[in-house]
Design a protein around this nucleic acid. Structure first.
Lengths: 134, 134
DNA sequence: CGGAATCCGCCGCGATACTG
DNA sequence: CAGTATCGCGGCGGATTCCG
């Protein structure tokens, strides 16, 4: 990890305890804060398979409301992960697709997904054990 | 990606549109929901450098309140990412450290961090451009 | 079809005060 | 030192209604 502005050491010669700040200048928090919401990762993984339209997305991300789909897509677009294209037909057709940065984000995200699937049971067991202790 | 229960296709012969559910059975949402909060990743990255005590963590995760540090540590412990050890001295000493699963989680998380640092500027530019358009 | 606008409940999170 | 308890706000996110 490169030592950016938001991660400093208490430099007294030998680098010691690194300090972390939670603000807009923290790259990891910037990304995690965006994809950490309720729907972003699911939408991203749906869009891996190719461009898709609003209502199709709505049916593939089960349980999402119109409001949250719109809002999450806007956020992803603002971050630069998703492109929005309007085809002025009647009725209107709108397609969403991953940008190159969006497709690039998928790679580390996919690592996390694989990890999550591998450890899913272990996590569930840990939760159960924790809850039974208390 | 293995086809688990929460990701299905509308199987009509050739696998087509995958569907995603947001529930407890979705491994990725399980993990992202936990580390996606405001403080978890920062605490995890502090603990990479070795076991640490409560008040030391508090000063290294700048801006976190006692309440959120306690709560986030409890959550991470419940998931199985963090171990909590109490040393019955006077005054009490409590150490937190990553479990083997916690250290393992760091790997994919670190990929994400690297990605975040690499694309931080691009994201900031995308936001700026988006905001100026509207 | 693909939204925008409004209303509102819940809870994540911070601030503060107290405790073994 | 390492917490717990209580209060309160802001914002996420759901339900509903209206629009080009």
């Amino acid at each position: 990890m490169k030592s950016k502005g938001n991660m400093k050491t208490t430099s007294k010669g030998k680098s010691e305890k690194r300090v972390f700040h939670n603000n807009d200048e923290c790259p990891i928090r910037n990304v995690v804060a965006q994809i950490g919401d309720k729907w972003s990762v699911l939408i991203l993984f749906v869009l891996i398979e190719g461009p898709d339209r609003f209502n199709s997305l709505k049916s593939r991300v089960v349980g999402i409301s119109q409001r949250m789909l719109t809002q999450t897509l806007r956020d992803l677009e603002r971050e630069g992960y998703v492109n929005r294209t309007v085809y002025p037909e009647v009725p209107v057709k709108v397609e969403y697709e991953l940008t190159s940065m969006g497709r690039d984000l998928i790679k580390p995200l996919y690592q996390l997904v694989s990890w999550a699937e591998t450890h899913h049971d272990e996590i569930k067991r840990s939760r159960k054990a924790y809850d039974e202790r208390s």
